[in-house]
Amino acid sequence: MFEARLIQGGLLKKLLESVKELVTDANFDCSESGIALQAMDNSHVALVSLLLRSEGFDPYRCDRGFSLGVNLNSLNKILKCAGNDDIITLRADDNSADSLSLSFENPNNDRIGEYELKLMDIDQEHLSIPETDYDATIIMPSAEFQRICRDLTVVSESVTIDVSKDTIKFTAEGELGSGNIKLKSTSSIDKPEESVNIELGQDVSLQFSLKYLMNFTKGTPLSEQVILCLSEKMPLLVEYKMDIGYIRYYLAPKIGD
């Protein structure tokens, strides 16, 4: 028996919005510790990994580990039927479950919507992502990162990210011209969520596809801050932390000439 009741149901709605562009079908791996999902996009250059810890639910019950194969588009459509303030409960029998039950309770507890989503068998490869000491780690406002990606898309389909001592620079060059945005590291004691923090082991310069980064910024509503982790010739990690877990996106760099 699997049951997970999320008081902040709106979070689940936002989460689905942040993965559905990248991945169509995925397994939700349920265990005692929580709900996890890992899936690559069709081209295998981008990956999304999310975790919702069991402590974030009230109650959370999962007797044994199993996977729920879900078409994310369908789940997203059903979640659109939930109000932003609704409490969302997910239920499934166990491994033999062929559907996922969802119930949406409004805050007054006088309207309850119940839905069933058909599940599917998804044979998905799972990559083991090693713990990495990145050359550069940047914590910055998520809305700023979203704006930079959106603005530079006007100029090019790729962006070069250069990180040096106290500056992160985003550069795009295209047929119409070029553009760049430099952010200096800042610290605001009053509003730490507005500061740009750069932790640097060594300088990094990497190029990425803006189309994918734009997709990753669908996670912006989940957190006021975004964490960018870069190492030479390694995939970029873009992370949005939430109270009850995280969503991480990985993107392979464009390398060589």
């Binding site: 295998h44 490869e125 990559l127 083991s128 090693p130 392979a252 464009k254």
Partner: peptide, 14 residues
């Protein structure tokens, strides 16, 4: 032309 390898290139399968 720059190349973009798939993520399997970086992350080993278990």
């Amino acid at each position: 032309v720059k190349e973009q390898y798939s993520l399997e290139f970086y992350f080993n399968k278990p």
